[in-house]
Amino acid sequence: MDLTLYKTLLEVAKWQNFTKASEKLGYAQSSVTSQIQKLELEYGVEIFERIDKKMRPTPAGEILLRYAAKMMKMFEESKINVAGQTTGSFMIGTHETTLFSYMLPPFLGAFKKNFPNITISINELLENDTTRALKAGECDLGFIVDREMNDPDLIFRTIQEEEFVIVAAPDHPLAVHGAIVPEDLNGAEILMSISGGRCRKLFETMLRKHNVQYTLTYEINNYETIKKCAMHGLGICLLPRTTVTSEIKNGQLTILPLSYPHFKLSVQLCYHAKRQLSVPMNNFIHLMCATTPHEQPYLEQASKVLPL
Rank of each mutant, 00 (worst) to 15 (best):
L154N: 05
R147V: 09
C139N: 10
I118W: 06
A136K: 14
Q160K: 15
N123G: 03
K113Y: 09
F111S: 01
N123Q: 15
I159L: 15
E138R: 15
G142W: 02
T119V: 13
L141I: 05
K113L: 13
F156R: 01
D151F: 04
L141W: 05
F111D: 06
G137V: 03
I120L: 13
I118Q: 00
D153W: 02
E163V: 02
E161L: 13
I155L: 10
D151L: 09
D146I: 00
F115L: 07
T130W: 00
I166R: 11
D151I: 01
F164E: 10
P152W: 03
E127D: 12
A136C: 04
L126H: 09
E124M: 06
K112R: 15
E124L: 05
N150T: 12
R147T: 10
D129F: 05
N114F: 01
E138M: 13
L125N: 01
L154D: 08
E163L: 04
E148A: 08
K113G: 06
F143G: 01
T119D: 14
N123D: 14
F111K: 03
I144L: 15
N128V: 01
L134Q: 03
E127V: 15
G137C: 12
L125Y: 04
A133D: 06
I118Y: 06
M149D: 00
M149W: 02
N123P: 02
F111G: 07
K135M: 09
K112I: 00
G137K: 01
R132D: 13
V167C: 12
F156M: 11
E138T: 10
I166S: 02
M149F: 05
E124W: 02
T119C: 11
E162R: 00
K135C: 07
T130A: 06
F111M: 04
A168R: 08
N150K: 12
F115R: 03
Q160T: 13
K113Q: 11
L141E: 00
F143C: 06
D146S: 15
N123F: 10
D153V: 00
D146Q: 12
V165H: 06
T119H: 12
G137Y: 02
R132W: 04
K113R: 13
E124Q: 11
D140W: 05
A133G: 01
F111P: 15
T131R: 12
D153Q: 14
R132K: 15
L134I: 05
V145I: 02
N128S: 09
I144C: 05
R132Y: 08
G137W: 01
I122V: 15
I122R: 11
V165M: 07
L126V: 07
D129P: 05
R157A: 08
T130S: 10
L134E: 05
I122A: 05
F143D: 07
N128Q: 07
R147F: 11
L126Q: 11
T119K: 15
D153N: 14
I122H: 08
K112P: 03
D151T: 02
N114K: 14
E127I: 14
K112M: 12
L154S: 11
D151W: 01
F156P: 08
T131L: 11
K135H: 00
G142F: 04
F143M: 14
F115T: 02
A136I: 00
K113P: 03
L154R: 09
I118C: 03
I122M: 14
A136L: 15
L141G: 09
